[in-house]
Design a protein around this nucleic acid. Sequence first.
DNA 1: GATGAATGAGATTTCATTCAT
DNA 2: TATGAATGAAATCTCATTCAT
Lengths: 200, 200, 200, 200
Amino acid sequence: MATFIEEARRRQIVEAAIAVLAHEGYARASLSRIAARAGISKSVITYHFDGKDEMFEAVFSHVADAAGAYMTPFLERAGDPAGQIAAYIRHQIAYMRDHRDELLAIGTLALNHGGASGTPDYIVRSAEEERTILTALVTDGQAAGQIRGDLDAEFIAGLISKTVEGGLSEWAWRPETDLSAYADQLIDLLERGMRADTKK
Amino acid sequence: MATFIEEARRRQIVEAAIAVLAHEGYARASLSRIAARAGISKSVITYHFDGKDEMFEAVFSHVADAAGAYMTPFLERAGDPAGQIAAYIRHQIAYMRDHRDELLAIGTLALNHGGASGTPDYIVRSAEEERTILTALVTDGQAAGQIRGDLDAEFIAGLISKTVEGGLSEWAWRPETDLSAYADQLIDLLERGMRADTKK
Amino acid sequence: MATFIEEARRRQIVEAAIAVLAHEGYARASLSRIAARAGISKSVITYHFDGKDEMFEAVFSHVADAAGAYMTPFLERAGDPAGQIAAYIRHQIAYMRDHRDELLAIGTLALNHGGASGTPDYIVRSAEEERTILTALVTDGQAAGQIRGDLDAEFIAGLISKTVEGGLSEWAWRPETDLSAYADQLIDLLERGMRADTKK
Amino acid sequence: MATFIEEARRRQIVEAAIAVLAHEGYARASLSRIAARAGISKSVITYHFDGKDEMFEAVFSHVADAAGAYMTPFLERAGDPAGQIAAYIRHQIAYMRDHRDELLAIGTLALNHGGASGTPDYIVRSAEEERTILTALVTDGQAAGQIRGDLDAEFIAGLISKTVEGGLSEWAWRPETDLSAYADQLIDLLERGMRADTKK
DNA sequence: GATGAATGAGATTTCATTCAT
DNA sequence: TATGAATGAAATCTCATTCAT
């Protein structure tokens, strides 16, 4: 049960996979390239993982779990719903800065991975989880009178999710993008757009 | 130079490619599958196109040009900048309804196509063109006092672009999505978020 | 529809596969070895056949059909049931002499081919067909009073089948085996063993 | 020289190999699968055996020796040659019932195992041994006037061998086969076919 | 203008074996 | 005595492309 070496290798492979996915894209993320990036032989990957699919699942879970774990405390601490939404956006975007490749990697996995049987469960579940959390925040905000009641909570949740991700792709595309400013602007714009005005 | 047959064949191939890209994804869009979908032999594709890359370029241009041509009149006609932005969003989203596969196809091309030398020029140029148009609209809106001057026009342009595309992916993911409602909500939210209030 | 070249290539591949199966066994009958034997590239095989399985099916059908076609007239011409059984044995064994590799090939396919889902249908069907024919002959012989009625027709049919095949493997194992003599002795022994004696 | 553990492990591995060979066939009998069936690690096999070939030799010898040891007393006890042949058939077939997997395993080994240098010696020798014993029995029967002198003893020996094995494959293929009845019918048929009639 | 045929490159995966511990 | 780790070889299959017709 030399879990140590095993874990180290798995992490090493996952990291190499993240790098290849982020920098070369899904279509080029072959076992050869990933192994080359990790400096190991191709068969080491199939030794430590059941196959390419299982490895990608490990990549996805590794990143998604870490991101989820990072976000949780901020959401809990952040006071009222509007504050929580702002916290969500701000910290998610802050997190991107330090985990660019990881998030790009799972992004491309979410978009491309999945064969004849459709998108893998763990990806679908992850997406739905995020959607559920955001929808609840919006609904709470509406109940608290902070967010206009006529807005469709699902729509807003989707919008937040897409625009936060948009920050990442903007940054990936244009490295000079200031992510903090992006977050600030996004929060400001959404708050103005969503807030229940005292008078219309 | 039997341009007629030539053109017909190219269109047929482009349409098959669109269908495969939209329904099976970039990674599965092989010449075999595209030829099979078109009911022709694989080598017909390499006869009419220089290779896979050139064919994908034709796909992209075909769709992007058509979408651009569709949008132009609406932008010109639409009065003030805020109205133009709304028109852009509304008509782009309306266009999606009738050209779902085409837009999904170029979406996946934009995200995945590109080899060692990076994203192809024609894709980059197309993205930048859209960005330029939107940025100009926002700048105009600011000049006209309709949009808050403290907003970064580039940021807003990117946001519009991403949220419009978001409508497509939302619809692709959840077919029950009402795209008209999506457009209305998006316009409403952005207008409130962007408008230069008479008093803060 | 250049069926000619297509057919020629398929036959060439099938023949190479037969040679490899017969001389090197199922376990060594890889596409590489078969292609090498045929003097072609590996991918020519997957071009002309859907895959290894389909190619093996072609091998099996090619041989089984030819053998069946060869046998039919002899069975029809051969008079009474006992004569037909003798004809079956004699001609089947005679056929072996000129089609050693083919029959060894489908023999090893019958024994080894088949993955998780069991033996392929076409092999099962072929085996059952032969069994049905032989069983019918035996039953006819019993009805005609030539074969003892207390014998289990199925058992005899299986015995004939196995002992005829036995001639092939005997010959493969010991090339000095005289197949004609083998057939004569087998017929003689079976006739004596099966015949309805006038008195016990 | 902890022969005890060593022997236990070897037996355990041999048994797992037998199970895999019998149920999944030669082509699927990989060290991985055998180790998995035994619930041990792959390298345990290569530790206790020099390699796959040596392990298969152990499998073959284990089964062939046990079957031989089982048969010997029956052959010695069984009176006249015809009785010995009947005993051989009956007890060999009876033995099959309790050792189905073992005999299927060495059957598939005999047919498939063997590389560039042909069938391994130990398999050839085992087959020849059986052939020798049977041939001697037939010759004895002829000398004793129980079996027609015009029969080729080698032929008969081969026939017995193949038809007895035939019982196993019949049973493997159709589990409802009654092996005792099979033995009875086979003995009856062979005796009638072989016996030196008082008058022709 | 069209396409069947061929093929090398490269993909994923299984495998037997070696080695260090 | 045992085994996790590693790996190169080889397996099947897919692919984009070239070529002859």
